[in-house]
Every structure is written in structure tokens, then in C-alpha cells.
């Protein structure tokens, strides 16, 4: 239909206009890494006793002896060819490392976002239906706690309760316990790969492994989602069209869900997009607590040893994902709101 075409056109235009920003991120991270203290050549020399000559040799190998602008040009040319450089830490190409770890991060973040949305939206709706009631205050308290408690604390707490005390959860390290055979990697998402391989036992093992870290992350982002749902639901419930819906005697469900919630969900989509991007980059704490082999913990490890290439690759990846998520939000918006194509 015409509206879908218009939405796609708008999304395309948005994408093109975000390219300069991506380029800026690229250059900025490059410069930032050079400004930060720490000399990679010293780190990767054979040992603390390595002589000056040896360090010089490594430096020349790495191309660090060239002036900054030259380094930048070389770097940009490499990125243009899809070469993000080689990690000194793992000895592999950064692109390969990221490709291996990104599904782990995405799987965790998407699951967490799903859990957060599924719990935050009803919570927000319930709170908005009875503003000032006990339920409303309960939701507010829960949300405040979720934001106040840092993820590494809530993560450890969940581990203590569900793994140590109750024993429901498996050993909270990594994506899968060592006794389970990995499925053939198709998507990189374990719970999908297990399903594709028809291995239900493996699937449940992976899912159980996923639950604790996912809930830990979800707890942290339920608050913004529930609050925005509540606020926009309140506006929606007080609007003229909901009054119209009441005046013709529509059922409670129709009024709340079809009329109020479908209108209130628009700002929630926007916030969910932002929350997702933030989670993906900021979930390093959760990844560390649960030994999750994701991109964020990879980038942190690299940063600590002044391994430039992985950090730059990570930032570029995050920026790209951010752009893609915004595009998706745009598309969703175009579908959810017929007025969006006009503006």
C-alpha cells in the first residue's frame, strides 16, 4: 500500500542521513583510543624485560610509528574493506571475534527486553487504570527498586536465591554447561539453533542458562518502560476518543486495549528502542557476573590491555546497531500510527 511505501522511503532517508554520524563515531573513537594513556607495543612485548629495540620492532609492525593522520587513513581504508583489524589479545580478526560474540549478546539482550516489555506494559496499564491506588504505589516501589539496585548486585542476589538456595537455576557461568554438545551453528542464537537441530533437551538447558542473566537485565529496564506506559496510558485514558468509546458502550477490554493502549503504545516503542541500544552496550556488568561471552565484556577486556582494534570495532558495531534499531522503531511507528507518514 501507499503508506508502507512512504514509510520505507522515510526510513531510507533516515538511514542515509545517519551515515555522517557513523563516520564521526569512527573518527572520534580512533582519536580517543590514541589519546588514552597506555602503549600497546609495551603490552604486547614478550615480557617486562623486553628491550627498547624489541618494542620498537613491535611498534613498527603495528604501524604505530607512522603519524596519526596516516594511521587514520589506513584504518578508514581497512574499515571500508570490511577489515576491522586484528585483536592482539585473541590473535583473531576483530570482525570474526565480534561475529562470534554478537549473537550471545543479542540473545541475552533481546530476551531481557522481551521479559521487560511483557512485564512493564501490563504493570504500567494497571497502574494507570487506578492512579493513586495501592497497586499504583506498588508498581512505583517495584520500579524504583529495579533502578536503584545495580545489575551486579541484583544479579548476585538472583544467583544466591535461585542457584545457591533453591537450586532451580543451573551453574551461572556462560551460555551452556560444558556437558551439553553445542548445536550446529546456524544463527548463533543458541535457543534457535537447538530448536533447528531438534534438540529439546539442549534447548531447555540453554534457556535455563539464559533466564537468570536475562531477568537481571530486565529488572533494570522495567522501570523506564513501565513509567512511560503508565504516563501515556493516563493521557490516552483521559482523551476524548476514550470518552467516545465509553459513550457508545464498548466493552472494558475494547476501551482499554484497542482504544487506549494502542494509542498509548507509540511512545513506548520509542523508549523501547532507546532502552535496547543502551542495554546492548551497557550490559557488560551482567556479562561479567554471568561469564557471558558477549561483545561488551570482550571490548572491556580489550580496553584494559590497550588493544585498539577490538574497542574501535565494538564502538562501530554499537553505533551501527543504534542506527538500525532507530530505523526499526521508525518502521514500527509508521505501521502503528497512520499519522506518522503525513508528518
Amino acid at each position: 500500500m501507499n503508506t508502507i511505501g512512504a514509510t520505507l522511503l522515510r526510513a531510507g532517508r533516515r538511514f542515509v542521513s545517519s551515515l555522517p554520524a557513523l563516520f564521526g563515531v569512527l573518527v572520534f573513537t580512533f582519536l580517543l583510543m590514541r589519546v588514552l594513556p597506555g602503549d600497546p607495543a609495551v603490552f604486547f612485548a614478550s615480557g617486562p624485560n623486553a628491550g627498547k629495540e624489541e618494542i620498537e620492532v613491535i611498534r613498527r609492525q603495528l604501524g604505530l610509528d607512522k603519524p596519526l593522520p596516516n594511521q587514520l587513513v589506513i584504518y578508514l581504508a581497512d574499515v571500508g574493506r570490511g577489515n576491522l583489524g586484528r585483536s592482539m589479545m585473541t590473535g583473531q580478526a576483530v570482525a570474526k571475534d565480534l561475529k562470534e560474540r554478537l549473537p550471545a549478546s543479542l540473545e541475552l539482550t533481546l530476551t531481557a527486553l522481551l521479559i521487560a516489555l511483557v512485564s512493564a506494559v501490563p504493570l504500567g496499564v494497571i497502574a494507570a487504570l487506578r492512579p493513586g491506588s495501592l497497586v499504583d504505589h506498588g508498581v512505583r516501589l517495584f520500579c524504583s527498586l529495579g533502578v536503584c539496585v545495580p545489575t551486579f548486585v541484583s544479579g548476585l542476589l538472583l544467583i544466591y536465591v535461585f542457584y545457591y538456595l533453591l537450586g532451580f537455576a543451573p551453574d551461572p557461568t556462560g551460555r551452556i554447561d560444558i556437558f551439553t554438545t553445542m548445536p550446529p551453528s546456524r544463527t548463533g542464537f543458541l535457543i534457535i539453533d537447538f530448536l533447528l537441530a531438534g534438540d529439546l533437551e539442549g534447548w531447555s538447558a540453554a534457556a535455563r542458562q539464559l533466564m537468570l542473566p536475562a531477568f537481571t537485565m530486565a529488572l533494570f529496564v522495567i522501570a523506564p518502560l513501565a513509567r512511560i506506559t503508565r504516563a501515556s496510558m493516563l493521557v490516552s485514558l483521559g482523551s476524548d476518543f476514550v470518552r467516545t468509546a465509553r459513550s457508545v458502550g464498548l466493552s472494558w477490554w475494547r476501551i482499554v486495549v484497542t482504544y487506549a493502549l494502542r494509542n498509548a503504545i507509540l511512545p513506548v516503542i520509542t523508549i523501547a528502542g532507546i532502552v535496547f541500544s543502551t542495554m546492548l552496550g551497557a550490559n557488560v556488568l551482567v556479562e561479567k557476573v554471568f561469564s557471558w561471552p558477549g561483545v561488551a565484556s570482550y571490548a572491556l577486556d580489550a580496553l584494559l590491555v590497550s588493544d585498539y582494534a577490538p574497542v574501535q570495532g565494538f564502538v562501530l558495531l554499537m553505533a551501527t546497531i543504534f542506527v538500525i534499531v532507530n530505523l526499526l522503531v521508525d518502521l514500527l511507528y509508521g505501521i502503528a500510527d497512520p499519522r506518522a507518514t503525513v508528518a
Binding site: D240, F241, R243, T244, V248, G249, N263, R339
Partner: peptide, 25 residues
């Protein structure tokens, strides 16, 4: 009682008709 009253027995039309209609339906 109210539901069967609303719409079926008495109905209302409002000022500002555009706001009184659901914008996304």
C-alpha cells in the same frame, strides 16, 4: 446497566469531533 444504556439507549456527540475519534483506527 450502564453499558446497555450507553449507545443503545442514549448517545452523545461532542465538541471537537476530530479529537473525539480514535486517531489510529
Amino acid at each position: 446497566d450502564l453499558r446497555s444504556l450507553h449507545g443503545a439507549a442514549m448517545a452523545m456527540i461532542f465538541q471537537n469531533p476530530r479529537a473525539a475519534l480514535n486517531p489510529i483506527r
